[in-house]
């Protein structure tokens, strides 16, 4: 990575749910074109970070900057403009049950961009092929698809408008090893083919090592370590060691 542009910045972001403080003045930079993986135990606020970046959840304190715009200060129309550059892949795909695969993937094309149906179908087929799905799924409902296929359709929907940033929430959770590996390949592919910046939230270390340029470990509301996969793998930090080796012994209590 030659040029270093900070495309996403979190500055002193705090967030509490009730009495539980999830993020505690957290700072994080994501560089243009990189894949940053955020690791950490369940419930430590990994997904909350993604929701802040996507503008789905306001932070209690701090600033979130995406492509030079402060997310918290944008009006709905401005936020929607920014969202054209951002694709979000949800943990359970979050496909719209009442719509077909085509209508799901083409959602923005039809609604915002007023693309004619024939053109949209060709466009959607192309995106489905990109995520390794055949074009004949177009008229199926999400309920007729397997978990892995649904995730791919979710990814196709996220990349439908050629985003510059893709946010992945637990992309491999609940998938069999083969499907997980296919999703990992896809994430790497997206970065290579589309030159997107990706933020991936996961606790699957195999996946993290495979897709990441950098890995950030979050614990107790803060980033406690950030570095290349090798740096994280060989880290001497007791918390990071415990997490990446998946050990019960260590400073993190097993709740």
């Amino acid at each position: 990575m030659g040029q270093i542009v900070k495309i996403i910045q979190l500055k002193g972001v705090s967030k509490s749910f009730g009495d539980r403080r999830v993020l505690d003045s957290l700072d994080l930079d994501v560089y243009s074109g990189e894949t940053l993986v955020i690791i950490g135990r369940s419930g430590v606020g990994k997904s909350t970070i993604l929701k802040h970046i996507a503008g789905l959840l306001p932070a209690d304190q701090g600033e979130i900057w995406v492509e030079g715009l402060e997310v918290g200060r944008l009006k709905e129309r401005e936020m929607n403009e920014l969202r054209k550059k951002m694709g979000v892949v949800f943990q359970y795909a979050a496909l719209f049950d009442s719509l077909t695969v085509f209508e799901n993937v083409a959602f923005r094309l039809l609604r915002d961009f007023k693309m004619v149906e024939d053109k949209a179908r060709a466009w959607v087929k192309e995106k489905l092929e990109l995520v390794g799905l055949r074009g004949d799924l177009l008229d199926l409902k999400p309920a007729q698809l397997s978990g892995g296929m649904r995730k791919r359709v979710g990814l196709a929907r996220a990349i439908a408008v050629d985003p510059e940033i893709i946010l992945y929430d637990e992309p491999t959770s609940g998938l069999d090893p083969v499907s997980s590996e296919a999703i990992n390949d896809l994430i790497v592919d997206m970065q290579k083919k589309l030159r997107v910046t990706s933020v991936v939230v996961t606790h699957d270390m195999h996946s993290a090592y495979k897709v990441a340029n950098r890995i950030a470990m979050i614990y107790d509301g803060k980033i406690i370590g950030i570095g290349t996969p090798d740096e994280i793998k060989n880290s001497q930090d007791p918390y990071i060691r415990q997490f990446v080796t998946g050990s019960v012994e260590g400073p993190m209590p097993v709740r």
Binding site: R83, M86, F90, Y92, D97, R108, R111
Partner: peptide
């Protein structure tokens, strides 16, 4: 099932 969030992200 986060479909409401998905609607937001799709503007």
């Amino acid at each position: 099932t986060e479909q409401i969030d998905a609607l937001f992200t799709l503007a």
